[in-house]
């Protein structure tokens, strides 16, 4: 009984310590962004490994999700004779929800885990210590550029996901199932609002990008410097950032669309 209490106490202490370290870290990382201005190369390099390398999975998933939405939406709407509204349905679900959320989940799996593993291994092989001893702050040189790249990439990837998804829905709905071409676009334009839907969707993806990248670099930097520690940290990145994305999505949706 007492032992169990102790375990609970130990775990919650650990949790709060990690939370504290996470907040201190993000503060330092944000401070370090200023030092990147004379070295845009560092960010470009990371935009490549965080953004460009995630491109394929995002575009392909976006197209397939759009096609499935087209198929499912058509089957539901045709019963009400409302298949003209297919474009609205596909576009709204994509820009409001699926675009930001699915992109963030894929991003956590593709780029987040890679960031954690890379930083964790740099720690395990003492590369971060070596930088410190060379009087180079690893937070500024290693973490800040990765954070900025993640924060920039996420909304761009989510926009591509939604855009490609709308095309996927078009391909299935108009191309294969015979929904009217003009109706698909015009109904969509009449119902999708630039502010309510597009802008809020972009805000969501910015928030997700911030949180996922934050978790990824923190887990890497805080990892136990062994192969097992790094592998655990990588798993934690994917699990924690997925949960964070879904939870935040609920909160943001409640704030934005009510």
């Amino acid at each position: 009984m007492l032992n169990q209490l102790q375990i609970i106490g130990h775990k919650s202490l650990n949790f709060f310590q990690r939370l504290g370290r996470g907040h201190i870290l993000i503060f330092d990382v944000l401070k370090g962004i200023a030092s990147l201005l004379p070295r845009p190369r560092l960010v470009v390099q990371q935009l490549y490994s965080v953004g460009v390398l995630s491109l394929i999975i995002i575009v392909v998933s976006g197209f397939f999700v759009g096609m499935v939405m087209g198929l499912q939406g058509y089957n539901t709407l045709v019963d009400f004779g409302a298949e003209e509204s297919l474009g609205v349905m596909v576009a709204l679900s994509l820009v409001r929800e699926l675009g930001p959320v699915v992109t963030a989940l894929l991003f956590a799996g593709r780029a987040g885990s890679a960031l954690t593993a890379e930083i964790g291994l740099m720690k395990a092989t003492e590369q971060l210590s070596a930088m410190e001893m060379m009087a180079v702050d690893p937070i500024r040189r290693v973490l800040s550029p990765r954070f900025v790249a993640g924060f920039i990439s996420m909304p761009l990837l989510a926009a591509m996901f939604s855009a490609v998804g709308v095309l996927g829905g078009f391909f299935v709905g108009v191309g294969l199932l015979g929904v009217d071409d003009g109706a698909y676009w015009s109904q969509m334009q009449a119902s999708v609002d630039i502010y309510d839907d597009i802008y809020n969707g972009v805000i969501k993806s910015l928030v997700f990008g911030f949180v996922v990248t934050w978790i990824a670099i923190f887990e890497g930097y805080d990892a136990i410097p062994t192969s097992e520690g790094v592998s655990r940290a990588t798993t934690r990145t994917v699990v924690h950032s997925s949960l964070a994305v879904l939870g935040l999505d609920f909160i943001l949706t409640a704030l934005m669309f009510n």
Partner: peptide, 26 residues
């Protein structure tokens, strides 16, 4: 630290840079 050099037990070279760039880094 700029006036201290340290040689780590396993080298601790930056793995994404080649030998030349590692030495040029500081």
């Amino acid at each position: 630290r700029k006036r201290m050099g340290m040689l780590f037990q396993n080298g601790a070279l930056l793995t994404d840079l080649n030998v030349f760039d590692n030495i040029a880094y500081p």
